[in-house]
């Protein structure tokens, strides 16, 4: 019927809009992570834990941040993984 084909057309349009939004958002985010590479990053974590490290990279599912020279309260850990679930936010300068 006409109405159902019109509906499926607008569905397709809606899907394209969503795909476009998703890819713009994702590309901007991936570029942001790439820009953070080798930068000093400050992690603000749960339980009021704040640490600094040199950002290296993240897995694409954003579950883990891989960092170097992590300044923990009890010393420097040369290489570390920080769980995303432990983090509230992180900052760096550009």
């Amino acid at each position: 019927s006409i109405s159902s084909s019109a509906a499926s057309e607008s569905d397709a349009e809606e899907l394209q809009k969503e795909q476009h939004a998703r890819s713009v958002l994702r590309e901007r985010f991936l570029r942001c992570l790439l820009a953070a590479t080798n930068k000093k990053v400050r992690f603000h974590m749960h339980e009021n834990v704040n640490v600094e490290a040199t950002f290296r990279t993240s897995d694409i599912d954003v579950l883990n941040f891989q960092v170097s020279d992590l300044h923990t309260p009890i010393g420097v850990q040369k290489e570390a993984l920080i769980r995303c679930q432990d983090v509230i936010s992180f900052t760096f300068d550009m």
Binding site: M45, H46, E47, V49, V51, R56, T57, S58, D59, I60, N64, Q66, V67, S68, L70, T72, Q77, K78, E79, A80, L81, I82, R83, Q85, D86
Partner: peptide, 19 residues
């Protein structure tokens, strides 16, 4: 990420998840 983890063998910090 995979290559860095292979080369540098980073350990989780903290060892036990905060949350």
């Amino acid at each position: 990420f995979d290559r860095n983890c292979d080369l540098k063998q980073p350990k989780y910090w903290p060892v036990i998840p905060l949350k």
